[in-house]
Design a binder for these strands. Structure first.
Lengths: 151, 151
DNA sequence: CCAGCTAACTTAGACTGGCTAAGTAACCGA
DNA sequence: TCGGTTACTTAGCCAGTCTAAGTTAGCTGG
């Protein structure tokens, strides 16, 4: 097909184009799946960060790649909906900690379960060989989508 | 490690969990990369749809999985920025067609080029073996992220 | 032939989620 | 104790999504 011979100077340029075209479908599908959830994907993502224990605002913002004011607004909404609570740090009175509530935890688990069930269903349709291909590519995909590495 | 023996009833459940965890990084990285572009990823996506010729509003909305009013707003912004023009269909006076302008086309190509360059760079760091693994998984990934198929 | 339904858009209004700039309160160092 | 820095919030802007309601054009059945 399009596997032209002049790939020489750019190993993976062709592959990059292929991936780029596919990424649109990924985004579309993610939106579709997230559509009828009780929490948005951002909210679920933040709740996921809090699963292991409370975090401060700065840590949350950094982990999600957003500015502090964005996280303030996000936590406001989560708090309003009873999914997290704000707390204070003993050491430093400036610090605000955010903790997931039991309700938040329940919602998070249910949401994750639905997402995984969806993916599992899709994977089941693929057949063993294709699943193996994806599994084999996981380490590579990990590196490919690794958070923007510093140097 | 976690590859427990009771995978039997659910081929791919484990893989689904792996993928689910990775998807967050994909989203994060996409946001990061899109951050300093002159057009948003949605705008670029719509422009991409128009590359092959004018489309009507309904077709655009369907293709991007959004409601008509959303597409109206999107096209308003694109038109305001001189990237598309609205037209009328000869047959049916209710129909609005949207066409990409030369400026829109230029911007689209430049944006796509930067995205592909970014991916190419990432892929170059991976090494031949990992690139091959990703290439081998492409057909499977295609099926996995295929738009929600109706039966 | 026209009355009323349907289809294609747009408008209005609300919400999430992102940003910058500016405000406030607490910490820390000289 | 004063001045700078840090941690967060507030205010205000914009993109992008939705639903509900409006407008205009096509279509159909008496």
């Amino acid at each position: 097909m399009v596997t032209a011979p002049e790939n020489s100077g750019d190993p993976g340029r062709e592959l990059a184009e292929q991936l780029n075209r596919r990424l649109r479908n990924v985004v579309l599908l993610l939106r579709q799946v997230a559509a009828d959830e009780p929490v948005t994907s951002q909210q679920a993502s933040v709740l996921g960060s809090l699963e292991g224990g409370p975090l401060r605002m700065t840590a949350l913002a950094a982990e999600h790649g957003v500015r502090l004011p964005t996280m303030t607004a996000q936590v406001n909404r989560l708090e309003r909906d009873g999914l997290v609570t704000r707390g204070r740090d003993g050491q430093d009175a400036r610090v605000v900690t955010v903790e997931i509530t039991p309700r938040g935890r329940t919602l998070l688990l249910a949401t994750r379960e639905r997402r995984i069930a969806f993916l599992t269903g899709r994977l089941a349709e693929l057949g063993e060989e294709r699943r193996a291909a994806i599994a084999a590519a996981l380490p590579a995909l990990d590196m490919l989508f690794e958070p923007p590495g510093r140097t």
